[in-house]
């Protein structure tokens, strides 16, 4: 496999990826650009788990859709094993990257049996005959911890956690290298969330999977992620090793997210960031540092000029407080 011969190539790399939607405001309103993803650079090594964290609406799912080839980036490029996504055809890309979505009530076609749902990738790619597909479904069901008898049942007969296991089985049946998990536990009962997280962790070890693990809640990624990227209004504002981020986060937004995790009942719903001011409208992002209206450390300088990403440790921070060049203008 070419991937093996190039161990240093990141499995997944994003270079300056942006996505601008054109949205209509009101009935007669003119179309305005909405920067859902704004110049994102990320790399994922083999068997890494990158946690992507940020409040709802910051562009996480848009980024996931770009990685899956479901949306084309407005600019920038995505490389899989060093090759731009555009040069993979859809089927080839599908064998490498598979998604697990947030809502298991919406991600399984209610008209199809569980066996049909899980075997769809095999049928689309023409892998094996009916008998071998059935066998593969049986095996993958065992891997995700479901009994073989669910094959002839329908999604409506299953619980949320069981459905999410089916979605995981569908994503893994073609043995992809990369799995994009877009909030895979947010729609589940708290009691089931940890089971699914544990399952995803075991599967990663067993199959050497690389995950991009998206969540609006830092607590969810703590145990699974090797690295964490924090996203705000379409930009990565901090990226660091998981331990480093949890021990000593640098960006004020990361710290606010961490504080919200430390409130009494972590994991329940959208964390309260205690940031007061509401999340800004992405059509009219604040000037300067987009976080400044909510930032406790903000200065007049922050409102005037946007910070640059600064390498720090083996990650990056995007905040004037950590930029050796602009720090001196601060107070």
């Amino acid at each position: 496999m070419n991937a093996m011969s190039k161990p240093d190539t990141p499995v997944l790399e994003l270079r300056g990826v942006s996505k601008v939607y054109s949205v209509k405001q009101g009935l007669m309103g003119a179309r305005k650009p909405l920067r859902a993803v704004n110049d994102v650079n990320l790399t994922l090594g083999r068997s890494e788990v990158l946690g992507l964290v940020g409040e709802s609406g910051c562009g996480k799912s848009t980024l996931a859709k770009i990685l899956l080839g479901l949306e084309a980036p407005t600019s920038g490029e995505v490389l899989v094993d060093g090759e731009a996504i555009g040069s993979h055809d859809r089927l080839k890309l599908a064998r490498r990257i598979q998604p697990i979505f947030q809502d298991p009530y919406s991600s399984l076609n209610p008209r199809k049996s569980i066996a049909e749902i899980i075997s769809l990738p095999l049928r689309v790619h023409g892998i094996g005959d009916h008998a071998s597909q059935t066998k593969a479904v049986r095996e993958i069901l065992d891997v995700v911890g479901l009994p073989a008898r669910v094959m002839n049942t329908y999604p409506s007969q299953m619980s949320g956690g069981q459905r999410q296991r089916v979605a995981i089985a569908r994503a893994l049946i073609m043995k992809p290298e990369i799995v994009i998990c877009d909030e895979p536990t947010s729609a589940l009962d708290v009691s089931v969330q940890s089971q699914i997280l544990n399952l995803l962790g075991e599967l990663r070890r067993e199959f050497g999977l690389t995950y991009l693990f998206i969540s609006h809640n830092l607590a969810v990624v703590e145990h699974l992620a090797t690295r964490v990227a924090v996203m705000y209004l379409g930009r990565i504002v901090e990226e660091a090793e998981t331990g480093a981020l949890f021990d000593a986060s640098r960006h004020p937004y990361s710290r606010a997210l961490l504080d919200s995790v430390l409130t009494p009942e972590p994991g329940l719903g959208v964390p309260d960031t205690h940031l007061g001011a509401a999340y800004p409208n992405p059509i009219n992002p604040p000037p300067g540092c987009a976080f400044h209206p909510r930032c406790a450390s903000a200065t007049a300088f922050c409102a005037a000029r946007a910070p640059r990403p600064v390498a720090s440790g083996d990650g990056l921070v995007e905040c004037h407080l950590y930029d050796p060049e602009t720090e001196m203008f601060q107070r």
Partner: peptide
């Protein structure tokens, strides 16, 4: 807009399918 349609697209299923 349902996620199973996005899942089928991500699998590489053709538009007629």
């Amino acid at each position: 807009g349902r996620e199973y349609v996005a899942a089928a697209q991500a699998i590489g299923a053709s538009t007629p399918r």
